[in-house]
Every structure is written in C-alpha cells, then in structure tokens.
Computed example of a mutant assay.
Amino acid sequence: MNKLPKIAFPVIIAAVVLFIILVKSAVTIGSGEAGVLYKTFGGGVVTEEEPLGEGFHVVAPWNKVYIYEVRQQELFEKMKVLSSNGLEIQIDASAWYQPVYGDLGKLHQTLGENYLQRVIQPAIRSAARSVVGRYTPEQLYSSKRDAIQDEIFVETKKILEKQYVQLNEVLVRDVTLPSTIKEAIERKLKQEQESLEYEFRLVTAQKEAEKQRIEAQGKADANRILSASLTDKILQDKGIEATMKLSESSNSKVIVIGSGDSGLPIILGNQ
C-alpha cells in the first residue's frame, strides 16, 4: 500500500479547517427575517448599521448573527381587568406588531430576543387596565367597545415607540362581563327599548289626534264663513243667474217670471 506523500497531510488539514471556517462563517437569512451582527472583538452588537437582510452572508467565524422575524406578528391576550366600579371584566384582545427594522440592533442590545414577554405584553396589559378602568360595565357592554380598542392602541403605542417596536393595530375581540351583571344590563336595555317604543306610539297617537282636530276645526270654520256669506240677496242673484243659463238650453220649457218664492222664476217643461 502506497503511503500518501507527507505534503498531503497538511493540505488535508488545511482543507478541513477551511471547510469548518466556511461553515461557521456562512449565514443564511430567510424570508421576512433580518440579522443582528455581534462582533466578538469589535465592540459587540452592531447598532449603527443596517441589519443583515435576506439571503446568504459570510461573517467572521468568531462573530455571531442573531436572526429576528421582522414581519408583522400577532399577539393574543386574555386579560382580567377592573371596570370603573371595581367589577372584574375579561378582555380578549390581539395586537399586531413588528420590530422597527432600522433599530433591530438596539432592540437586541436593550431587550433581546424575548422582547415580546419583556415589553409588549406588559405594555398592552397596562394600557388595558388603564383604559377599562374609566368605563362602567354597561358602557363596555353596549357602546364603548370601539372606544376602548382605540384608546388601548394609542396608550400601548406610546410605550412601544420608545422600545424599538412598531404597533400596527389592537383588536378587542370580546368583552366578557360577570353573568349577573350581563343579565341585569340586558334587562335594563330591554326595558329602555320597550319604553322608547311606548313613547313612540304615544307621540304618534297624539299627532294623529291633533291632525283630526285641525281638520275638523277647518271644516267648521269653512262652514261658518260660507253660512255667514250667503245672504238673501246673494241667493236671489244666484237663482236668477242659474235661470238665465237654463233659458238658453235647447230643451223645451216654460218659464214663469216672478212666480216663485222671493220672486225667483218657476221653470215648467220637459225634455
């Protein structure tokens, strides 16, 4: 068996070392991700440069790359908070968030990879407690859900803007009240609805009665004015005017002038 030349051993060793270096130096960053470079002998976390983007990168083997997801992510939270009168309310909410891409190095340096538990969850819980504590259970149940959603978003966003995290939306999916409070609110709302319906029917009936009264008064006034205007002289003139029109008709007739009551003509004849 032929022995390998002595020069072959150093070449093999060098090749193995080079392979190991390449393996440790190669970094592939996937879609929707970015990398934070940590320089072991160069000042630690790189914060003043853009993070490493998607694709293949070669770094010094003694350095490290921490990979973060930079796409929008969703956090689901079930929180028990107190209303303005001290009753316990359960809020089911979700938050859409993502790290600020240009500040990824600062995020890694100050909060680390578990920034979700360190800052986002405490921020949204604190905002929810603050906002819900301003409202009664009845307001939360009926008309203020959109309002508390917007207010929780605004307060959480203020906190996270200082923590290199971008909050895109907060959605309040459900507000759960104690069953006894919920039933009492539903009874009250039902009573209010019935009261409004009764008031509507009452107002409608009053308007209809007023309309009929006005119409009757109008007819009475018209009859009174007409009766007052029909004097004997006017009636006589109207009778003469009607007689003159009848006399012009082609139908045969006999007109006796001055033979009727009040001197009106009497018309005799047939067609």
Rank of each mutant, 00 (worst) to 15 (best):
D232Y: 07
N114W: 01
V23P: 02
V132D: 00
E48M: 07
G105E: 04
K6P: 01
Y68N: 00
V154E: 15
V81D: 04
S179C: 02
G133I: 09
Q73K: 13
L111A: 01
E74R: 14
V131S: 01
E69T: 14
K80R: 13
T28C: 01
G269K: 10
L196F: 09
R145H: 06
A34V: 08
Y97M: 03
K238H: 06
L177S: 07
F19G: 15
I266E: 13
E199I: 06
V27M: 06
L264H: 08
Q217Y: 03
Q163I: 03
E169F: 09
E113R: 13
A209V: 12
S229I: 09
Q193E: 14
K190V: 03
A242L: 11
I120K: 06
N251C: 06
R118W: 04
K78V: 13
G32Q: 09
A127S: 14
N270W: 13
G263I: 02
V165L: 07
S143M: 03
G112Y: 05
A209E: 15
T110P: 01
K6L: 12
I21R: 00
R125W: 12
E194V: 08
F9Y: 15
E138G: 08
E161R: 14
S31I: 08
L107Q: 03
A15Q: 02
L22V: 11
V46A: 00
S247M: 10
E54C: 02
S227W: 04
I181D: 08
E151L: 13
N251I: 12
I214K: 05
A209G: 00
S179W: 04
G35H: 03
A209Y: 11
N63R: 01
V81Q: 04
N223L: 14
G102L: 09
L167I: 10
I120L: 15
Q163V: 02
V27S: 04
H108N: 13
S262P: 03
S195Q: 13
I67M: 02
V100S: 04
M244F: 10
I152R: 03
E199S: 11
M244N: 14
K39M: 14
A228F: 10
E50V: 12
T156R: 08
S195C: 01
V172M: 01
N223C: 00
S130A: 13
E194L: 15
Q149F: 06
P99T: 06
K245C: 00
Q191I: 07
A60P: 03
I185G: 04
V45P: 11
I257R: 10
G218M: 08
G42Y: 06
N85W: 01
I91M: 06
V131K: 00
F76H: 11
E77C: 02
M1W: 06
V16H: 04
V175Y: 03
S262A: 14
S195T: 08
G218D: 02
P99V: 10
A209M: 11
I67F: 03
I159F: 09
A220D: 09
G105S: 09
